[in-house]
Design a protein around this nucleic acid. Structure first.
Length: 281
DNA sequence: AGTGTCGCCTGAATGC
DNA sequence: TGCATTCAGGCGACAC
């Protein structure tokens, strides 16, 4: 399930292949994902150099000449595979789009659950487009600071866990990294968001940055291995401290898990939350 | 306006 | 064994 670090890793993996290249062909295997594919993608992208790849929240942005931007969201199960020029590739189940570049390399978008999105917009709409206008600050950027987060949480009646998943508060933090950050900051996920104050907010900002930056680093270090293996980008081994570890011991406890039950799983807003009640009060 | 719930979708895991 | 059910979750739509 791609969150910000995985999306960043896929974007970085695509960059050397796409940069300064051009699209020569786009083949679709269905008409839509969550939203319809852009009309006449091939015609609109062809003959335009790819100037850069960037990321906003969990969207990969491919920036073409002339302000044309292609946005790719991986949803829950989206995967991107790079096939080098001349390399054999047999189309797989759930491959929905194949983009061929002028140098003959191909980019495959595969997404079993089809929660992903691919759409186009003009660079002038980066702030105003429906997909972006409600987005909060980038967690690794300067706008995401303790004073900012304090203000954002001030009147929030909801839990801190659900507040962190709210893209208006901060983007890119999904279920896994919200759990991990709250564990690292020793904050109980059920605490009402507005009650987190002062030093705790500073700590939260710092651990969110730290958790994401470390995951990006882990992703970057695996990139070339994935390229060598099969061209698939962006999924790498994580070592989570609480996520999906119900009943196991947490790293900072030496409690008897027979008695304490170890890491707990609760449901908040229909999502699983994993936490240690002894570390996170 | 802020908050909570639902539906989208498929495959893996679980239940009977 | 095989069929049915449950669960996972990012995000938009919708209700209150």
């Amino acid at each position: 399930m791609p969150e910000l670090p995985e999306v960043e890793t896929v974007m970085r993996g695509l960059t050397p292949v796409m940069l300064n290249n051009k699209v020569s062909k786009v083949k679709l295997y269905r008409k839509d994902l969550r939203v319809p594919f852009p009309k006449n993608m091939e015609g609109r992208l062809a003959k335009r150099s790819i100037l850069s790849l960037t990321r906003r929240a969990k969207y990969i942005l491919v920036n073409f000449e002339g302000g044309v931007v292609l946005a790719i969201h991986l949803g829950m199960s989206g995967k991107v595979t790079i096939i080098s020029s001349g390399e054999r590739y047999d189309i797989q189940k759930h491959d929905h789009l194949v983009m061929t570049l002028e140098d003959g390399s191909r980019i495959i978008y595969n997404d079993p659950r089809r929660f992903g999105m691919i759409f186009m917009f003009d660079e002038s709409e980066l702030e105003t487009h429906a997909a972006f206008k409600h987005l909060g600050p980038e967690p690794l950027g300067n706008k995401f600071s303790a004073p900012y987060l304090m203000r954002a949480l001030k009147n929030k009646k909801t839990s801190i866990k659900q507040a962190l998943l709210d893209q208006r508060v901060v983007v890119g933090v999904g279920n896994i990294y919200a759990c991990e950050a709250l564990y690292q900051a020793k904050i109980n996920p059920e605490k009402q968001a507005s009650t987190i104050k002062g030093g705790k907010v500073e700590e939260l900002v710092s651990v969110i940055r730290d958790v994401l930056a470390r995951a990006i680093k882990a992703g970057g270090s695996t990139l070339k291995d994935y390229r060598h293996a099969d061209g698939e980008l962006g999924y790498f081994q994580h070592n989570f401290t609480v996520y999906d570890r119900k009943g196991l011991a947490c790293k900072d406890c030496n409690c008897n898990i027979e008695k304490t039950g170890g890491i707990q799983r609760i449901v908040q807003g229909g999502r699983s939350t994993f936490y240690c009640p002894r570390q996170q009060k």
